[in-house]
Amino acid sequence: MSRVLLELDHVSVSYGSVPAVRDLSLEVAPGEVVGLVGSNGAGKSTTLAAIMGVHRLAAGDIKFEGISIAKEQPDAIARRGVALVPEGRHIYPDFTVEDNLRLGLLGRSTREGADRDLEWVRRLFPAIADSSKRMAGLLSGGQQQQLAIARALVSDPRVLLLDEPSLGLAPSVVDTLFDALAEIRDKGVAILLVEQRAQLTVAFADRTHVLRNGDLVLTLGPEDVVDTDRMTQAYFG
């Protein structure tokens, strides 16, 4: 087992001839929280989608637990222990909450411990446990986000990729969400967090990278939250 859990090595992704991510390198160690901030179009979501195998790399390599996953299919990557909570949540609105959660179980490498994990996420997000027979589309925005995270968690991931989990949520709901993320981190799940809310992210993550136009321009630590200059850069990418 290598010290690094997830490693992006000079990764480039493009759409047609338009580069979306250029020569990006970063690492996530087991149990670590790494933030990724930057303005719209900076390449954050593309990076997560590329890790998950949804986009093919133009150059570079992605390793998980020391093994290259750059050419693998998303479902195989999921079973290795990578889980993505996509932007916009992508829950199944016409399915019950229960069915949405059951879909998360497909990403497990083994059925063992499934019940324990289900119980854990229900404790973590009580609102979901209470509405398991309802259609997921009827949940509030915050609850849908919780469901999307819960669905990712029951796949027993070693790293959780979160794409703008706070988008469109009220500030109080965001606080609850970050409390949950802290609990997830304390369970030993590493988190790669893409966010627009730079302040919150920098304070929460062990390291936060700032992307601009597909390039990594700056790396911040939690101590930088008080450094106005550096935070300004983080906001404006």
Partner: peptide
């Protein structure tokens, strides 16, 4: 796409 991300083969 979401199905595949979740591990559907």
């Amino acid at each position: 796409t979401t199905a595949r991300i979740l591990g559907v083969r």
